[in-house]
Amino acid sequence: MDATGADAGGMARTAKSGGVRAAKAAANRARMLAAARDLFVAQGYASTSMQAIAKQAGMAVQTLYFTFATKRAILTEVLDVEIAGDTEPVATLDRPWVAEALAADPAGQLRLQAAASARILTRVAPILEAVRSTAAHDPEIAELWQTNIAQRLTVQTRFAEALAAKTGLRAGIGTDRAADLMLAAFAPEAFHLLVHERGWQVAEWEANAGDTLIRQLLPDGPQSG
């Protein structure tokens, strides 16, 4: 084998080895995030230590600190992953379901928003409840909670603007108020109360949220969707 062949073989082995290491690192990261999520939900953020997360994940605590540095960093990434449903670096407003909803007729848009919110909140409402309950006495987590609200409002404002461009909103409703009503209808607190505390089925919550926004935001008359 000539030098060129030897170099190519070495590069292939190096690439393969790097791929294996990357896959192992990603799997370990996912284990740590899953362990943190389960513990934050089960016993609260404040009561969960880095040592406990490492033990739950079956990892050395030094590995946990090396990967995330702080408990808040873990919580932030847990939220990001649970909201997205994956680890892809794609913003919410760039997700395919958003484009589908924005392209729908007015009632269809609101029902697609409710369907997406049901899927997202099924994943993230328990961890958001842990964040909300901690925010009352932890300034760092209070800041994280406010950031989450602001992010949700940004998304709903985009939807409200799109809705207003498709149809005249109900009299007295502007885009700011429409965004606020969407924010309230899809609030994780309401989802947690009705689904986890009152025993509603997720499909019932979804239908109610969509119907409520159609009544609140759209003018009277036949609506598609």
Results as ranks from 00 to 15, higher is better:
214 I>C: 15
171 A>R: 15
149 I>H: 07
11 M>V: 09
106 P>H: 05
223 Q>E: 09
117 S>P: 03
115 A>N: 07
214 I>D: 12
14 T>S: 06
74 I>M: 12
193 L>S: 09
163 L>I: 04
100 E>N: 01
143 E>L: 08
26 A>G: 05
92 T>Y: 11
187 A>I: 06
9 G>E: 12
95 R>Y: 08
94 D>I: 09
119 R>M: 06
164 A>F: 06
207 A>R: 14
100 E>I: 03
100 E>D: 06
175 T>Y: 14
135 A>L: 11
129 E>V: 01
223 Q>N: 10
133 S>P: 01
199 G>W: 09
1 M>F: 11
32 M>D: 08
22 A>R: 15
19 G>E: 02
200 W>H: 06
70 T>D: 07
115 A>G: 05
22 A>W: 01
5 G>S: 14
132 R>V: 06
111 R>N: 08
168 G>R: 13
67 T>E: 02
122 T>F: 13
69 A>M: 05
148 N>M: 00
81 V>A: 05
174 G>D: 15
15 A>E: 03
123 R>A: 14
195 V>A: 03
71 K>A: 02
69 A>T: 14
224 S>L: 08
197 E>P: 02
70 T>S: 15
72 R>N: 05
31 R>F: 08
28 N>G: 00
122 T>R: 15
214 I>Q: 13
15 A>F: 00
63 T>A: 12
111 R>E: 13
64 L>W: 05
211 D>I: 10
184 A>T: 07
102 L>S: 05
16 K>R: 06
64 L>P: 03
171 A>Q: 15
11 M>D: 10
122 T>L: 15
212 T>H: 07
129 E>A: 12
217 L>H: 02
50 M>H: 09
18 G>K: 04
157 T>G: 00
72 R>Q: 13
171 A>Y: 08
213 L>P: 12
160 A>N: 12
44 G>M: 08
137 H>G: 04
163 L>Y: 09
81 V>K: 13
152 R>T: 05
95 R>E: 03
78 V>M: 10
179 A>D: 01
21 R>P: 00
32 M>Y: 12
192 H>N: 09
14 T>I: 06
61 V>M: 00
39 L>C: 13
97 W>L: 00
219 P>Q: 14
179 A>R: 02
5 G>D: 12
212 T>P: 02
133 S>W: 06
225 G>E: 11
